[in-house]
Design a protein around this nucleic acid. Structure first.
Lengths: 335, 335
DNA sequence: CTGAAAGCGCTAACAC
DNA sequence: GTGTTAGCGCTTTCAG
């Protein structure tokens, strides 16, 4: 690795002269600047990031901790975060908590010693279930800027990026009601997550407000240990008159749609389906699934923006929560 | 941030004593060790990674550069890499090249200045098409250990992890032939990638060897700009007698399956389909797609192992190429 | 216009 | 058993 010292020796000048020259300091003669730069280029000199960071206490690196990268939502958010960060001259260090609190705490711990300037994270399921967020508050108390997205907690005081989960599910349910649906089932494999609860409440509220809807709400939950397809099969068996399905997670809407087709439901005549899936699954469904679009790219982008704002201006103590608008996209599985 | 200096001052000892104590040096009295550790724990002392790395020239960080994180194969590989790296005490810095050579070169450039101990990467499409791998060879010449996985190049001399692409496609095609299929179409959206070419050759070779197969091979390629569903629709229209499909990419097999069902093909009686998809799509298909399993987790794990081996023993100049076995998993779309 | 020196936080050879 | 010193590569004040 070629260092300032090497350049200095070759050119018979001091290290500090080289450093200044490379930064176009006007203390240095144009001639010297030129010579230094030429040699630097020739030897492919690159400043040692570690040394620069150590000196400046700025790493230009963001720690990103996500629960599960195989979940397309998080993969897409990560994609957006990486894009925006890279555009702003930042790198990202990625850790996957695998929904485990211990892994999450570990990663936080390991990176909060000068490795990153700040964190962008979404809370692990285990952490949300136990609602034990001390490890997250610990880094915030160390004044390491942190942005939470999607899965957040009221017990953490920091910048946040969320969607209007309640409203999105409410709107989708309202749409099904407006189609005249009489038996609307909610499907969820994220029952114990904050976003799952909010979406469920949106569904419940919509049903409650509907004057001419007299059924009890039906919420079918899929546990980690369950076979989703089996659960959904059972749902159809137990709810023979179902005419509307709202899935509040990534995948169950698609599975339900496939099962319904297999069971010869005419869609959307007999049955409407709305999912929370990303549009990447659309190529796998026919008819095309109607979905609530979460604008995942915007979520990632906004997270980076919020973090960088905080990094550049750490004093503003007021934390902001940014809500990204969702959009109900009606395709072929709704009337 | 609490440093060795802080601890030293509090305890009225020198910085080096503190450092040694924390490393259990037997130069230090048990008593002092205890006092130091107690205070360190109390103040939540964490060694500054940057300083340690600068000193030791070891970052314990791996740079991972993948073409596209929204591609499930790469997401899964990244997952495996993160898992294994983290198990071995390494962090990963992730960069996404977005299939662009410039972005790939940038990332390599930016991280090859002490930020990472080595690279694990899969080559961007643009890079493979142009077959311009100078930027990759540049880091290898700087003696930064690098492991290539999946998309590799003969023009790069480094450790590699691949699957037997040729053999996998060959085996799958052979299976279709053994079912007595007479018109086998190959579907691909990765025509210009090394792996795409190898898989295509496997298909061609199998057909060539089949004595009682007299059709010309039919290879349908889906370009970036194409609408995959449209192309596949056309394929069915133009090949009315198709009775076998092998998809050599992630998704086109699933799309073809859905289209075939829509067109009332009886599967697997009229038509067999084999895909290269990961099993995450299985929940979206019914009947379940038969696939070539790439053992993506093993690929990621092996990449990390190879890299760490090289890091711990940089002198062994012989580069190894590890081939991960694939497996043809017959499910419901084959006889 | 250029250089010497200090220091970011840490480690380790070498004193005492 | 403990402390001093030098140095990893860089930036930056301060002297010259």
């Amino acid at each position: 690795m070629v260092t300032l010292k090497h350049l200095a020796e070759q050119l018979n000048v001091s290290v500090s002269t080289v450093s200044k020259a490379l930064h176009n300091s006007d203390e240095i003669s144009p001639d010297t600047i030129e010579r230094v730069k030429a040699l630097a280029k020739f030897l492919n000199y690159k400043p040692n990031k570690l040394a620069v960071s150590l000196k400046s206490s700025r790493t230009n690196t963001i720690g990103v901790i996500i629960p599960n990268i195989l979940n397309h939502f998080f993969a897409k958010a990560l994609y957006a975060i990486e894009m925006e960060a890279s555009k702003q001259g930042y790198h990202i260090i990625t850790c996957v908590s695998n929904e485990l609190q211990a892994k999450e705490a570990d990663s936080l711990q390991l990176l909060s010693n000068g490795s990153v300037d700040g964190f962008i994270m979404s809370i692990a399921e285990e952490t949300q279930v136990a609602n034990n967020v001390d490890h997250i508050n610990a880094v915030i108390q160390q004044n390491i800027p942190t942005v939470l997205f999607d899965r957040v907690s009221d017990d953490i005081n920091c910048d946040k990026v969320i969607i209007d989960d309640f409203g999105a599910a409410y709107e989708a349910t309202m749409h099904l009601l407006s189609e005249g649906r009489k038996r609307i089932v909610l499907l969820s494999d994220i029952e114990d997550l904050s976003v799952g609860k909010l979406r469920t409440n949106g569904y419940l509220q919509a049903l409650k407000e509907a004057k001419d809807y007299h059924q009890e709400p039906v919420m079918v939950t899929i546990k980690k240990s369950d076979d989703a397809e089996q659960v959904i099969d059972n749902m159809f068996r137990n709810n023979t008159t179902v005419d509307g399905i709202i899935s509040i997670d990534n995948t169950s809407g698609v599975v339900a749609l496939q099962k319904a087709l297999k069971l010869n439901y005419k869609i959307p005549n007999d049955l409407s389906v709305i999912g929370f899936s990303d549009d990447n699954v659309l190529q796998f469904t026919d008819p095309k699934l109607s979905t609530i679009s979460q604008h995942t790219l915007d979520i990632g982008k906004a997270s980076v923006e919020l973090l960088l704002k905080r990094l550049n201006d750490p004093n503003t103590s007021l934390k902001t929560t940014k809500t990204i608008k969702t959009k109900l996209v009606l395709r072929e599985t709704t009337k």
